[in-house]
Design a protein around this nucleic acid. Structure first.
Length: 214
DNA sequence: CACCAGGCAAGTA
DNA sequence: TACTTGCATGGT
């Protein structure tokens, strides 16, 4: 068995299922992916609650809002002016490419759809991959700052490895499986948040300790 | 008070 | 290509 599967098994055995991505619909998940850029998820929840309360968590309704109105609703998520533009850019894309229906994107080939989504101003590799995996069920591995930190801190990747380098590491080693990619990323985030923090510490109780000691 | 949070684009050299 | 900076609220 590969190191990557052993790592997964160690985290899953210790932490159990993560139930990601939180969100009632694929659309809510996609919007959440943009709102959570460099931002605590708790703040995103407040923004999403505001959108729901305003009956605006809907592609057409949200697209009809002015940037000012949108910014005000998503204010708790931080960077609200720039995120209002980013969300609107994504909604423009949805309008023109899928008639405001995310499901209409699902028949497309992964790599070409990924390129198109990356073409949206404000959607970079992580956000695009979150949308593809968590909202559209494509088999793409999501990398983030936690992945970078957890892997390099444990000597499983060199410092400075870039997004796609890290992504290839996982995707070359793992079977192409949406449920596996989904849970794996979620587990890494949980380990990153609770044990492998920026300011070191807590390694003694880290779920990866037993796996690494072998 | 400082630091961090499920990034990205634009500017600079 | 490889850095640096702006964007901003809310929790610890």
């Amino acid at each position: 068995m590969s190191v990557f599967m052993k790592m997964y098994d160690a985290m899953y055995a210790s932490l159990g299922p993560s139930h990601w991505w939180p969100g009632d619909t694929p659309f809510e998940i996609a919007i959440g992916a943009i709102l959570t850029q460099n931002t605590n998820w708790k703040n995103v929840e407040k923004a999403i609650a505001n959108l729901k309360a305003a009956d605006s968590l809907d592609p057409e309704a949200m697209h009809a809002l002015s940037l000012e109105e949108l910014a005000e609703l998503i204010r708790p998520a931080g960077y609200y002016n720039i995120k209002a533009k980013r969300v609107h850019n994504f909604l423009d894309f949805l309008k023109h490419e899928s008639d405001f229906n995310l499901d209409n994107l699902k028949h497309r080939e992964l790599n070409s759809l990924r390129s198109q989504i990356l073409g949206i101003n404000g959607v970079g590799p992580e956000t695009a991959d979150c949308i593809l995996l968590y909202a559209l069920d494509y088999p793409i591995f999501v990398v983030d700052a936690y992945t970078q930190r957890v892997m390099s801190r444990h000597g499983l990747a060199y410092e400075g490895i870039d997004y796609h380098g890290l992504q290839e590491l996982f995707m070359d080693a793992l079977p192409e499986n949406v449920a596996l990619y989904n849970e794996y990323h979620a587990l890494i985030v949980r380990v990153g948040k609770d044990w492998c923090k920026k300011k070191a510490g807590l390694c003694a109780t880290c779920p990866l300790k037993s796996f690494l000691d072998q």
